[in-house]
Amino acid sequence: MTTHLIFPAKAPVTAEIVGTDARFPVNRIFCVGRNYHAHAAEMGVTVDKSTQEPFYFIKDASTLVPSGSTVAYPPQTANYHYEMEFVVAIGKAGFEVAEDNADELIYGYACGLDMTRRDLQLKARETGRPWDLGKDFEESAVLAPIYRKEDVGVITEGNLELSVGGEQKQKTTLGLLIWNVREVIAHLSKLYHLQPGDLIYTGTPEGVGPVVAGDVITGKIDNVGDISLTIA
């Protein structure tokens, strides 16, 4: 029996890989919340690693746009924020992975932007509702080309920075992540069966802020290239 779709299925979402014409098929986008102490503080909360666990929100793969894109200012917000992030691309399935084995799941790394409707996120937080409206919306996950781990090695350190219109807004080092990449993979793999194609946005540092139409965002991470986005 032949199955007929009532409308065309969406094409798979894929990302560019540095040094090859092959593409990285994107499965899920996991984002780590409040993974730098200074950013948590600017959001009005504190994080105690000794008593707390990491937490996550998810963006649909359809929200992904490549670095260099021009995106529309999103609807129903008056406080549209950038968040520069170190992204880990998963290339191997894993469940309940030990920290010592976490690197085995990594395919590569990229620069990312977690674009946020901050007013909608804060309204949801204040009322105890999910963050979806503030985080999971069209063109809200920006991704630069992925650098393969086999080419750049295992990355645990490096500077991260973001500028708007040439003015630096965010600057940190990956060493200041509260939960490092191995810890995040090990913890996340207790909650989900991680799959090839999953992306993990590991969290943003302090200095987040609004952008308006006409702004150009640029960012970079040592050994992971750079990223850009224009707000239409």
Rank of each mutant, 00 (worst) to 15 (best):
F86G: 06
L113Q: 05
D119M: 11
A61Y: 04
I106K: 08
C111W: 03
L143G: 06
F57C: 06
L105M: 12
I106L: 07
V88L: 03
V97M: 09
P75D: 11
M43Q: 15
L105G: 01
A93V: 02
P145H: 04
F137C: 04
A102N: 05
P66A: 15
T116D: 03
H37R: 13
A102D: 05
T116M: 08
H37A: 13
S67H: 09
E96W: 00
E85T: 00
M43G: 13
E42M: 10
S140I: 02
T77R: 04
N79G: 01
R125E: 13
L133P: 01
N35F: 09
T46R: 14
R34L: 15
S140V: 05
E42I: 14
D103W: 01
R34M: 06
M43T: 14
V87C: 06
A78P: 00
H39Y: 13
E85N: 06
L143K: 04
D114A: 02
E104A: 10
I106W: 07
P54C: 07
F137P: 00
G94S: 05
Y82P: 02
E53S: 10
A40W: 11
T46C: 05
R117I: 10
F95Y: 13
Q52F: 02
D119P: 11
N79E: 15
S69Y: 05
A98F: 02
L113D: 01
T70V: 14
A141M: 04
M115T: 04
